[in-house]
Design a binder for these strands. Structure first.
Length: 530
RNA sequence: GGGCCCGUAGCUCAGUCUGGCUAGAGCACCGGCCUUUUAAGCCGGGUGGCGCGGGUUCGAAUCCCGUCGGGCCCGCCA
């Protein structure tokens, strides 16, 4: 059958690659990098989600598969992230797994960072096998590949030059040793390689940065000269993937276009030096974060998956990452309600409530929905409710009001935005998302309300006439009549009512709103305006 | 200097890979419903011919070449 969704198409490609392999795959493995040097943002989460989706796609095709999330925790620290203590500057240049966790809750800085992403992944519903790159080196998993590359480092240098026009590796070994004296990794250079050992000298310097202060920090080597095992260092990125792909028998890895060059080089290294057909790739455009000042500074102003999940469901998050691979996507908080509604629309299409005349498009949207549901779509159509509308409602019904949930539910039921039977826990979650959004993003000013004597008088008359047994319609009429009798334009009086009750100029139909909130409570509120 | 992506209705976009129904959706907008608000409701309306110019084809938004506009990445390092 013809495949119409990108995940399924990639499985076809993975199977095509399989044809070329001498050694066939028992297990189909997808991989993604798990950042460990900075705060993991939504783009890092995108890597993981996409790799996981291909893992699911492979499984769906009846193939045995695995997904490895590999933490690049032997990379050196280059920048002190915003919101981190200044003394972290001393650790610039050290592998992140050798740096103490500045917050003291994990074994290392690197572990702290990757755990943030892993937490996000768990919340998004992504399962993975965690692999520490530091571990791979320590255990010598890639020894064979490293030796091959070091032995022929000049050839590697030529390939790098050919693919990227960078000449430096025709002279240098593409490998960093962790200095046994000072512990830094980016200040060393190899002078010789023989008998599985590398000779090195720690005399290079490189430029780090403190993102908090914007200050650049020059880090210099300690001058130490020594000889050590290849397990005490790491390959340069331009060749590291290749070694990892071969050693771990990776079948698929997706990348952002920012590292396109590195991927090209690694593919070539893989083919020409390691005799291994590189994994299938998917190159995607990046998420451009324009989170603005809304994101709290304590989170380092980074748009993390956790931030999204405060305002939107895991489904909406997955949709963001699944929908398209190749747009530069501006991701900000305003994308969240959009995606909430889009998930609902997909559900409507999936369950046949929305007609899509183009068969192909319908099939595509249905498949997209299945992936959004991690290929386990619900049996029956879940709750769908316009998230924008919900945000409007949450905006006018103050958070502290009693029976807020019931009020919102009744408004939705009354306006037929909800079916008779629906999943209450789901609605509660959605109200929470919408409320968070209103509070943090769409907050409206609540002016101090001042009423003139005429308004006060009318309001007081209205209060006297208002009784428990009146229907919503009768209350609506009463407001209208009270306005007329007091020579106030109905329009203005309604406005007054809304401002008194909700603090905003408009709201749900006043009669129903008062009925729903309760006459008694309304009288209390009005009493404050004597 | 090298490369990627986008340009379809007022806005956000789908459709482009695998050319072919009368080019679609949502929002906005316009008209109507509502004898009592400023409609979160209901009914009805598509207002563009797919950035531009060539080419291929019986046929192009879809393929090819060129061009303009917008966005982004690489050209330190990882």
């Amino acid at each position: 059958m013809e495949k119409i969704f990108w995940c399924d198409k990639l499985v076809d490609e993975i199977l095509e690659r399989e044809e070329k392999l001498e050694e066939k795959s028992d297990v189909f493995i997808t991989e993604s990098g798990l950042g460990a040097s900075g705060i993991p943002h939504i783009g890092s989460a995108g890597d993981c989600v996409r790799a996981y989706m291909i893992f699911l796609a492979l499984k769906d095709r009846g193939l045995k598969s695995k997904y490895y999330a590999v933490s690049d925790d032997r990379d050196g620290l280059r920048k002190v992230p915003i919101g981190f203590p200044k003394n972290l500057e001393e650790s610039i240049g050290h592998p992140v797994s050798n740096i103490d966790d500045p917050f003291g809750c994990h074994r290392s800085y690197g572990e702290h960072m990757s755990s943030l992403l892993m937490d996000g992944m768990e919340k998004i519903g992504v399962e993975f096998e965690f692999i520490s790159s530091d571990d791979l080196y320590k255990k010598g998993v890639m020894d064979k590949e490293i030796k091959e590359i070091l032995k022929n480092h000049e050839k590697a240098g030529e390939i790098i030059k050919r693919e990227t026009l960078q000449e430096r590796y025709t002279e240098q070994y593409p490998f960093f040793v962790i200095c046994e004296n000072c512990g830094k990794i980016y200040t060393t250079r190899i002078t010789d390689f023989h008998n599985d050992k590398v000779e090195y000298v720690c005399d290079e310097s490189f430029l780090g940065k403190n993102s908090e202060t914007g200050e650049e920090i020059r880090v210099k080597g300690c001058g130490y000269r020594g000889e050590t095992s290849i397990r005490n260092g790491k390959l340069q990125w331009k060749v590291e993937f290749a070694a990892r792909w071969k050693a771990l028998k990776i079948n698929f890895e997706a990348f952002g276009k920012d590292i396109l060059d590195s991927v090209k080089v690694n593919d070539a290294i893989c083919r020409e030096m390691l005799n291994f057909e590189p994994p299938v790739h998917a190159l995607y455009e990046l998420f451009v974060e324009k989170s603005g000042e809304r994101i709290s500074k304590s989170k380092g102003n980074v748009f993390t998956p956790q931030v999204w999940l405060d305002y939107g469901s895991p489904e909406s998050m997955r949709l963001l990452m699944l929908k398209r691979l190749n747009y530069t996507r501006v991701v900000n908080l305003f994308e969240i309600p959009k995606h909430m509604d889009e998930v609902d629309r997909l559900a409507n299409v999936y369950f046949g409530e929305e007609e899509i005349s183009n068969e192909r498009e319908r099939a595509h949207l249905k498949r997209l929905y299945e992936y959004v549901c991690l290929l386990k779509p619900p049996e029956e159509k879940p709750l769908t409710v316009s998230h924008y509308t919900l945000i409007d409602i949450c905006n006018v019904i103050p958070k502290k009001i009693k029976n807020r949930y019931e009020i919102i539910k009744n408004i939705l039921l009354r306006t037929k935005l909800l079916p008779k039977d629906f999943d209450e826990s789901e609605l509660k979650k959605r109200i929470e998302y919408a409320t968070n959004f209103v509070e943090d993003v769409g907050k409206t000013k609540r002016e101090k309300i001042e009423l003139n004597s005429l308004e006060k008088k009318a309001l007081s008359i209205f209060k006297e006439k208002l009784t428990e047994d009146m229907s919503a319609e009768e209350i609506q009429t009463l407001i209208f009549e009270t306005a007329k009798e007091n020579e106030i334009k109905p329009r203005d009086f309604f406005k007054t009512i809304y401002r008194v009750i909700l603090g905003v100029d408009q709201g749900p139909r006043a009669g129903s709103l008062i009925k729903i909130i309760g006459v008694e409570r309304i009288k209390e509120i009005i009493s404050e305006y004597r």
